[in-house]
């Protein structure tokens, strides 16, 4: 699975949706993921890719990691993986 597919699978599971219902333009909010679901999604992504995402639930949108859409999350993960390599 590509990074994109893995992220969509994680987000779909968290949102209790089919993979086909999640697109890159989806926002987590539009998928019905609340603040707890968001923290769980971040955790699942960190575990999947063995990365540490700079994320503080006190200010989810204000951190350096962009979570405004699925596409932004994929981009952020790609960049963190590249930094690690």
């Amino acid at each position: 699975m590509s990074i994109r597919e893995k992220v969509i699978a994680i987000v779909a599971e968290q949102a209790v949706l089919e993979v086909g219902d999640v697109s890159e333009s989806s926002t987590l909010e539009s998928l019905g993921i609340d603040s707890l679901g968001l923290v769980e999604s971040i955790f699942a992504i960190e575990e999947e890719f063995d990365i540490t995402i700079p994320f503080n639930a006190n200010d989810p949108m204000g951190g350096e990691f962009d979570i405004s859409s699925v596409a932004a999350i994929i981009k952020g993960i790609e960049s963190l993986i590249a930094d690690k390599a």
Partner: peptide
């Protein structure tokens, strides 16, 4: 730490920019 609500630098209640 897992809950992602902890501050890494200080507890600043009621202050703008508080981070946990």
């Amino acid at each position: 730490e897992g809950l992602r609500v902890m501050s890494r630098d200080a507890c600043r209640p009621f202050s703008l920019g508080r981070n946990g």
